[in-house]
Structures are given as C-alpha cells and as structure tokens.
Design a binder for these strands. Sequence first.
RNA 1: UCCUCGAUAGCUCAAUGGUAGAGCGGCUGGCUGUUAACCAGUAGGUUGGGGGUUCGAGUCCCUCUCGGGGAGCCA
Length: 432
Amino acid sequence: MQDIDFTIRNVAQFEGQQITLKGWVFNLRSSGKILFLIVRDGTGFMQCVVSKAEVGEEAFSKGKQLTQESSVILKGVIRKDARSPIGYEMDVNEFEIINISEEFPIALKDHGVGFLMSKRHLWLRSPKQHALLRIRAEVEQGIRDFLNQEGFVLIDSPILTGSAAEGTTNLFELDYFEEKAYLSQTGQLYQEAAAMAFGKVYCFGPTFRAEKSKTRRHLTEFWMVEPEMAFIEYEDNIIIQENLVFYLIQRCLKECSQELKALDRDISKLEQIKLPFPRVTYKAMLEFLNTKGREKTWGDDITGLDETIISEHYEQPVFITHLPVESTPFYMLPDPSNPRVVLAADLMAPEGYGEIVGGSQRVHDLNQLIDRIREQQLPEEIYQWYIDLRRYGTVPHSGFGMGLERVVGWIAGIDHIREASPFPRTIEKIYP
RNA sequence: UCCUCGAUAGCUCAAUGGUAGAGCGGCUGGCUGUUAACCAGUAGGUUGGGGGUUCGAGUCCCUCUCGGGGAGCCA
C-alpha cells in the first residue's frame, strides 16, 4: 500500500524503498546502455535511471521510443544521489508505457509569450508555470485560512448583476432574458449587505473589467477577495489588511520554498517585509512624486507609472492614504476632520509591482450617501437596496479588495500577472 | 481607443534591393552519469493576407489581419 502514497514531493520518506511512480516524461537523454528520464508526477520532477543491464534488452529498446511528455508507470528503488537537484533519484527495474506522446510543441528552450499563451493548456506543465500556480493555490488557501481564523464568514457575491456598482468602468454586458445584465466588477456592495447580517464577511471569486487595458498589471477576468466588516473603522481596516498581506508572505516563504526557488525568486526581498507597513498621505505622496520629476497637483490620479516609481522606492508595502474626495467612488467616507479627502487607503507592493489592495471606510449615514450619489450623478433608482442598508440599523463599516493575481505576481516575482492565472483573459486572449 | 515595436522552418532568430540560412525540436545512427547532454547524418519554407514600386522584393511603399510592450482606467 505504501507505494500508492508515493509522490516526488515527499520522496525523502521513501529512500531505499521499492515504489511506483506514475507520471510524464519531462525530458530524456539516452545512450546505448542507459536512459535518463526526468519524470514529473504533478508534485515535482525527478530523474529516473533505466539501464539495459537492469531491465533487459527488449524493455530497454522499448524505453528508447519514449518522447517528451509520454506518460509512464515506473517501478523502482529510490536512491539518495548528491547529483540530483532534489537529492534523490530512482533506479527503474520495471516500466509500463501508457502513451507515446506526439511531438510536444513546447521544446525545452526559450519561447515567446504569444506562442506559450496559445499553448497555455500545455504550458501549465512547465516547471515555472507549475510553481506559479502552486503558489497561487497556497495564497488562495492562505486568504481563506486567515479570514476564517479572524471570524469572517464567506458570503459569495453574485457574478451576474443588473447594475454597475461604480458606474465608471466598462462592464461586460450580456443579454439576460431580454434585459441587460453585466458581469460583476466587484462584490463589495453585496458584502456591505452581508456585513449587516453577519458582522465580518468576505467574498472571493472572479470579477470582470471590460477595460481595454494592455499592461502587465491587468486582466479582464481576475480574482479578488473582498472582506467587509461592520463596526470596523478606517484604522482597524488598515491593520487587518497589513496583517493579511504579512501572513500570506510568511506562509509562502514557509510552504512554497521549492516553488520560489524554481522561479529564481530573491526571497530576501520577501523575508525583510515587516509590520507595520509605512503609511503616506496622498498629499505627501504627490510631493514625493514631484521630487522624482513628475508634475502632480491636487486631484491628479496616481497612475501606473507613478505606482511603479513609488513601489520601486519603498522596500516595504506602503499605504497611500487620504485620497482626494473628487476622484474616489461615492461609497467612500469623507474624512470628518478634512472633507477634501476620504478615509481610504491603497496598498502598493514593493519592487515595482504597484497596487494590490484598495480599501476604505464606507459612508454609513443615509443622507450623506444620497448626497454623494447625486453629486456623482449616478442613477439613484438602482442603488435603492444599497441605500436601504443605511435605513435599518446602519453602523460604521469598512472593507477592502485585494487582487489575487497581483499578490501572487509580486510574491512569485514575475513580470506580468497573466502568468499568475491558469487561463488568463486579456483584451485579446480568450482561447484556450 | 491611442502610441510604439513586430510577423521568415514546429520554436527562437539571421539574411546590404540580387541563389532563403543557423540553433533548438523531429527523424536515423553512436555513446553507462547526463541535468535545456554530446557527436554524425537527414527531412522540414506560398518569408501573415492583399495591392504597389522595381530588370529583380523577406528587404522599399500602401492597406488589412494578428501579436508584443506601453498610455488612459483600475485590483
């Protein structure tokens, strides 16, 4: 029964034992009498040695027919070997070929990203992509574990919505039984409703933006976690955010060291992250940007280039706080002590990665909310249910949204977030 | 939507306006310690589509299509 449990990831437990390995030939080299197979089983990569002396003439010549990505079942003994990157190899004494793979399109050499994305269904098998998506899985699980420990309840927001949440960004429109509906760009407003029922809640799922963005930071479909907390105000909201981000870094350093190594990530950059994260007001950040040659005045957006400048300057994630009221969504609460700004903060990851979290305290006063909706000339009718939340036992509350692919991209140290998604959707990529 | 760069063998790329090539991958053979192995041989092309200039276009011009990078906007 023991060999059923064998995986390359826990190979060390099987030294000296006869095991069965089921997997795929990642690469192979052969000579007249010895065949080296690098086999992957989904958990890792390991070299397996087939020698003619061990398996016999007939089996050996059969083995020489193997190609890259052929599927095999190998039986053999695990042996410690200093030459192996994982410290162990397998001496094969018996093998079965499930399928001789046709010529695999992705050779073991450099390819262009356009080609690799067109073969995304096959590219997932490559070591770096494999490592990246394992890190994504760890981050996702980490987010759930952290929030559950903190007493949050998962309340899924709908993906099909009848109205735009923020009114500004482009939505994917679709026909909903002869009415217009949209793919959700945020679950936040629904989370506010849920927070009034459960206290601390979150949603975690795909969101959609039909903006024609073509940058390393954008996807048209991306995953976002959106916690929302009743009775939590601006300050505590920020503390939860930095604790979550810090937790995710620590967790990946601990659980994904192999993956980070496979990606050549400089983990010292992650190891030096410490709490609390610095906070800089929007106003002070404009002054900083102007010392870097930007010409920013009050009300200007912090653009992608600005984000790069900021996040290359700071070694820690940094909050940009007290954003100008005129350029922020209607639901953000103006600062009672300075109505020109809102009690909101965006979190910038270091090393040039830019914004990963955006959060704010929400407007909870009925009349103030109606005023802000009117100021921004939004269609009041469709927000009636949201306005209702301020009629029936309204309380101060706060929340934030964190982009999964951006966090994964930063932790993994990749240069474009599309690789942090198994099947990324970008402006011109819907297949495969 | 705009700016910019690009499209040549399966892939990554080369080729001054003058006979389309290399490396990798494939195939055949050789090799008992290779880590994207190495050595020898071999097959593989409507140079993205259309139009134009020219004695002659992969190369110059126009246009369309597709793709990379970036802007705006945002997580």
